[in-house]
Design a protein around this nucleic acid. Structure first.
Length: 667
DNA sequence: GCACTGACCGTTTTT
DNA sequence: CGGTCAGTGC
């Protein structure tokens, strides 16, 4: 089987028991090796459903599931479980979360929900935005949760004022979730970890469900994930982790390279397999990549060996400003396209920050070239999507406070802010939920007649829809609901531009269609089942990334989103100090610079045939042109690191002091 | 409830 | 520069 594998790959595939660390360099055919390994396990008699493969993203899970099925054919009734960390944790929690005092059908709050809670919590404890913004708070909470710290522990460890405030807010934040019977994404991991840690029976039960565990992108696991893996694999030790320490680029959100670096110490029986042949890029490109990454201190020492000799040397180009940079790159791509040898999606323009693509978009539009900008505003961040989802969540559970407060007066139905405030106060003082307050008539006595009527109409609307769910299809109920609240006329009222009206309404329709698809494919469809599916499962109706790549345009995306992809022609633009490495990383520790270097490495190793690195000598920043200097990574790549201008330690040219005197504290 | 104004701020992003 | 958000006045 699989004669075309090289000896390293074969070893990775065939080491069937005990801990296995596969150090897979960029472009080494990692995905293929993992897939074949799963197939091999099954061929040697392992029951498919007793294999658990964990991936980092939904997309990766879907792809792996498809590859495995393709390899094994359809003869199997039984399949290996391929899942993301979070989705697997949900399954564990559904089975046992009662022990932690949560309802079995707990709701999962996404980023947007988290933000509204953060906002209201900060309002409650009267913290001005200048001290601690919702984003900062959520960042800290997330960090604490990954470190397995509860509010009390966080409070006692807090050092700065900011951290003390955040710890206070954390307590309230967590309380809000608990009362609503909801968890956030970090809780999925944290609570699972807690269950496995404190309840020996649960741990044994969950660990015994699988005989083999495979973890992909192991370099990106955070503390919780690490401990969960340990708890699940402890008994059988059949743990295969795959990853590349040089591609760890998510440290800023809690991933720790240390996990992959220390793996062999954690699991003493470990077999280590290194995949160091690169089948993707030419030798010329790989040489640059190897040079660059050798400047990182903490790493497995490895050198990618090219399977494709020769190749064009990567170009480094300087331009006067970002407009010239964009013009040159885009017109070069146009020449390639005119030659008809390449398709638009053979080209990728990679950048560090989201303001960079603007100049390129302008230029691409001017030359009428098709392009796709990956990332940006996600489907879920759209106001309309959030509204419809809030209604859905309310149908699933009216106790869902965050969703209720979002749409209680949207579209406007005569329940103004002041009334909502009184309802909330009442709920707090009765230690119940706003929904319960609204549904008990005696609670509404304090309000003037029309407001009472408005509330009763709203409650009736929701109750009616919930009752209809018993007899009608979800799509039908949701369509009726949306038409009852006259959501479309609300959109028309808010926006004058017909295009905008149409696109916003289309988004609503898309959600409804997705419900239809779910309902057709699911055996026992429920609203909360749909929400789970969309949030966590393998299917993703808004998979814009996928659709967009299929649309065959020149690909514009951040270095972060480029991980795992490959393109014949890659342009890495904005190769400047302050951008890559980003100035916030320069100000921080050396570790942060190392991560930026890995990010650069990820970019370089995306290129198959041609790599072009460009920079602008001046760049507009917040309306003003500013001088730049070449990224230190450019010098490192060509082996002249000593020539880099060190912006880090030398005081540098006398920087104009920003007029920082009377800026803050104006509220 | 809503349109308007001015202050403020600026990395990466998945589940 | 451009987007977001809180505050203001109707």
């Amino acid at each position: 089987m699989h004669e075309d594998l090289n000896p390293e790959q074969r070893k990775a595939v065939q080491t069937l028991s005990g801990p296995l660390l596969v150090l897979a360099g960029a472009g080494s055919g990692k995905t293929r090796v993992v897939t074949i390994r799963i197939a091999e396990l099954i061929q040697r008699g392992v029951t498919p459903s007793r294999i658990l493969a964990v991936t980092f993203t939904k997309k990766a899970a879907v792809e792996m599931q498809e590859r495995v099925s393709a390899l094994l054919g359809t003869r199997l009734q039984d399949r290996p479980v391929v899942s993301t960390f979070h989705a697997h944790c949900v399954r564990i929690l559904r089975r046992h979360i009662r022990r932690l005092g949560y309802p079995e059908r707990f709701a999962i709050y996404d980023r947007g929900d988290q933000e509204s809670i953060a906002r209201s919590v900060l309002r409650e404890i009267k913290v001005p935005g200048s001290l601690l913004r919702p984003g900062d708070l959520l960042f800290l909470i997330s960090r604490w949760k990954t470190m397995c710290l509860r509010p009390d522990a966080a409070a006692s460890l807090a050092q700065t004022d900011k951290e003390h405030l955040a710890a206070m807010a954390y307590r309230r934040y967590q309380n809000t979730l608990k009362v609503a019977g909801a968890v956030d994404f970090d809780d999925l991991l944290l609570l699972t970890e807690q269950l496995l840690e404190t309840d020996a029976e649960v741990r044994r039960d969950e660990a015994a469900r699988f005989d083999h565990l495979l973890i992909d992108e192991y370099q990106d696991t955070n503390g919780s994930q690490y401990r969960i893996v340990r708890a699940l694999a402890r008994d059988h030790q059949n743990l295969c982790v795959v990853g590349d320490d040089d591609q760890s680029i998510y440290g800023w959100r809690g991933a720790e390279v240390q996990h992959i670096l220390r793996f062999a110490e954690d699991w003493p029986e470990t077999t280590v397999v290194r995949l160091e042949h690169n089948y993707r890029s030419t030798a010329a490109i790989l040489e640059r990549a190897n040079q660059l990454i050798s400047y990182n201190k903490m790493r497995y020492d490895k050198v990618l060996r090219p399977a494709r000799p020769g190749g064009e040397n990567p170009k480094i180009e300087q331009f006067a400003n970002e407009t010239a940079e964009a013009k040159s790159v885009v017109s070069e791509i146009k020449r390639f396209l005119d030659s008809r040898e390449w398709e638009p999606n053979d080209f990728a323009i990679l950048f560090r920050t989201n303001e960079q693509p603007r100049a390129f978009e302008t230029e691409l539009r001017r030359l009428k070239l098709p392009y796709v900008l990956i990332g940006g505003m996600s489907f879920f961040d759209r106001k309309e999507v959030r509204d419809v989802f809030a209604y859905l969540k309310l149908l699933a559970s009216p106790q869902d406070e965050v969703s209720l407060l979002r749409i209680i007066n949207r579209p406007p139905r005569g329940i103004p802010q002041g009334v909502v405030q009184r309802l909330t106060d009442k709920a707090v003082s009765n230690s119940t939920t706003v929904w319960n307050v609204m549904t008990q008539r005696e609670n509404l006595g304090m309000l003037p007649g029309p407001k009472q009527a408005a509330i009763e109409t709203f409650v009736a609307l929701i109750n009616r829809a919930r009752a209809d769910l018993k007899t009608k299809s979800i799509v039908e109920v949701v369509r009726t609901l949306i038409s009852n609240i006259q959501y479309q006329s609300e959109i028309d009222r808010q926006y004058d531009d017909p295009n905008e009206r149409e696109s916003r309404w289309n988004v609503v329709e898309e959600v409804v269609n997705a419900i239809g698809v779910y309902e057709k494919e699911s055996r026992k469809p429920t609203v909360s089942g749909f929400l789970d599916e969309i949030l966590l499962s393998q299917r993703d109706f808004s998979d814009e990334k996928e659709n967009q790549l299929k649309r065959n345009g020149i690909v514009l995306m951040t270095l972060h989103s480029a991980k795992g992809l490959e393109f014949p022609h890659v342009y890495m633009v904005g190769m400047e100090e302050g951008l890559l490495p980003h100035h916030r990383s320069i100000k921080a520790t050396d570790d942060a610079i190392d991560e930026e270097r890995r990010l650069c490495y990820v970019g370089v190793t995306r290129a198959e045939e041609r790599l072009t690195l460009t920079m602008a000598l001046t760049r507009m920043k917040w309306g003003k042109p500013r001088e730049t200097s070449p990224s230190r990574f450019l010098f490192e790549m060509i082996g002249q690191a000593d020539k880099a201008t060190d912006t880090r330690k030398s005081p540098g040219p006398p920087r104009r002091q920003k007029q920082s005197a009377p800026r803050r504290h104006k509220r």
